[in-house]
Structures are given as structure tokens and as C-alpha cells.
Nucleic acid binder design. Sequence first.
DNA 1: ACCTTTAATCGTAATATTGCAATATAATAA
DNA 2: TTATTATATTGCAATATTACGATTAAAGGT
Lengths: 110, 110
Amino acid sequence: MGLTKTEIFTLEQNQISSIAKVFGHPARVAILQHLFKIDSCICGDLVDEIGLAQPTISQHLKELKKIGLIKGNITGTSICYCIDKENWTTMKTTLTAFLDQDLEDSNNCC
Amino acid sequence: MGLTKTEIFTLEQNQISSIAKVFGHPARVAILQHLFKIDSCICGDLVDEIGLAQPTISQHLKELKKIGLIKGNITGTSICYCIDKENWTTMKTTLTAFLDQDLEDSNNCC
DNA sequence: ACCTTTAATCGTAATATTGCAATATAATAA
DNA sequence: TTATTATATTGCAATATTACGATTAAAGGT
């Protein structure tokens, strides 16, 4: 096994978990925070900023790119990464809807 | 390897990723959604509701319990699970702060 | 006491993730 | 053309996750 049974879940459930999975590693959280902090985008400074090897950072960037949260621009030999604001907003809407479930009345028996 | 280097990240980054990791599986998302939907809590109906074996559901419940998002009450032979509203709110605050980073001005060069 | 029900735990197989060294690729500089 | 610089890819070892059958534990019912 080790394989998630995605087929038995709704599209929404799979979308939420896919997004959350990407946030499920501190390095990726750190990368996103850094990209937000440095207004203009930054490339391999991430390797220095975060204490992981270059291939590891590259791998994390790939996952962030795959889900569409960041995008990269080639500038000379380096690559300039930054947050994809539009997709970030869409993602936030999906995730917030999930997080705000508790707003709908509901009691608690425990 | 396969081991996350938590020590090089901030407490906040590790907290965010820990929460997100729990949401990173559709079964756990489904369980939480169901617990919200069914006002009063529900126990092993989750096994029927979601299409996974009982030990698997039990394992997912354990992770949700570990991070404090749900709690269980023993009622006879069955156990009644429900959302821990207080912890849910705290979690939401942490996660929302991360998701709302884009609100702080910031330009985009890509 | 004995069975039934419900849920947790154990053990294990299959797969995924993390991290990095080594290497490849691509663009610029000399 | 030959370096140099920056990033991606490959290959691999260590560990984690997912899933489930078998078993155990706990509570009630008969």
C-alpha cells in the first residue's frame, strides 16, 4: 500500500488535501514566506536563506510550481521565483471554505 | 534520509506544516467534514461513510486526535468523536495568518 | 461465564517523501 | 571556445505514510 485511495473521495476533498500536502513541509512554508517577504522575487538565495542543499530546495520549488503557487522567470543564469498571486487567491478560497466550516452553527456533544 | 530537518525551521513554520500535514490526506479531510456535518458526534459510522477499513480510519483518527483537532468520548462500546472547537479556532488563526500574507502590499516581478 | 460489538493495536507490504552527492543543462563571461 | 555560475535532474539511502488482515481490549448483553 502506501498509496492513497483518491478515487473514493470527492474532488473537493482531494483538492484540499493536495494543497495542504504542499504546505505540509516546513521548507516549503519557509520558501513561501520568504517569497512574500522579499517583494520582488528571489532565486537561489533560498538555498542560503534556508539551510538545505540546492537539489533539495529545487525539489521543493518544483512541488510548489506543480501546484501553481509559484512561478519562475529566467533572468540570465539565475531563475527568479515568485508567488502566483492569482492562484494563491484561488487556493485561499478553497482552503478558507474548509476552515470556516465551524461558522455554521453546529453543537458539540463531547 | 526521509527525515524532515525540523531543527532548521522556526516554531511557526513547523506548526503550520504540522497542521497542514494532517489536512494532507483526503480521508482526514472527509472525516473532519463529516464531524462538522453531523452536529452531534459520530463514531465508527465513519468506517461506513468513508470507504476505508476500520484500522485505517482508526489510524487517521489517531492523527487528528494527536494534533488536537478532535476528541473522543466513550459511550458504551462505541466511541463518540467530535471536533475540538477551541483547538480548531486556534489552528485556524495560525493557518489564516499564513494564508493572508498576500494582503500585505507586495509587488510581483514575474 | 460467554458471546457480541466496537474500536485500538500489531505486524507487514507497498508506496511516498526527504535529502543529498554527483551529474547534467543552460546561460553568460572571459 | 572554455570557464563560470545557477539551476535542474538523476540515483539512491533512510525514513515516513498508507492500508489492511489479524489480533487484542473493553464494555454490554444474555
